[in-house]
């Protein structure tokens, strides 16, 4: 396969800059889509908020060149195995962020800020 004569050299196309905030949003979206992981919503100054599956968990990204360290603060559904659930989240964030941005994710530290039971997700109870 030969390059077309109109093709521009990759070095002349310009640069693509991805900010920490963009990676934070991508990682937060991946975390939100991970089963049993909950994000915090509502409240004022950390008071009165609650965790649900429709909110993005809090994510902090630190970039070092093309490598990133990510810190996630999230709630987890209780009782699910915390090690397995967070390992799954870590792997999804690593592979998801790397594939979408090209940034190599080295560390994903996860802080479990809340454990939410089955009945605590809403103010209603399921009828058996």
């Amino acid at each position: 396969m030969t390059a077309s004569p109109d093709a521009v050299d990759t070095g002349d196309r310009g640069t693509l800059t991805i900010s920490e905030k963009a990676i934070e949003k991508i990682a937060g979206q991946i975390a939100m889509e991970t089963p049993h992981i909950l994000g915090a919503t509502g409240g004022f100054l950390g008071i009165g908020g609650h965790h649900d599956e429709d909110s993005r968990p809090k994510v902090k990204v630190r970039l070092h060149g093309q490598m990133a360290s990510i810190e996630v603060s999230a709630g987890v559904r209780y009782p699910t195995p915390l090690r397995t659930t967070t390992d799954d989240l870590r792997e999804r964030i690593r592979s998801g962020v790397s594939s979408r941005t090209g940034v190599d994710v080295r560390h994903v530290d996860i802080d479990i800020t809340s454990l939410v039971g089955r009945s605590a997700s809403t103010d209603r109870r399921e009828l058996e």
Binding site: L82, D109, D111, S114
Partner: peptide, 19 residues
């Protein structure tokens, strides 16, 4: 090497209390 998972004991005890 891949990162750490941490959980404060208060978070776990709150979940147990709710249970």
């Amino acid at each position: 090497a891949d990162g750490m998972t941490s959980c404060e004991p208060d978070v776990l005890s709150d979940a147990v209390e709710a249970d």
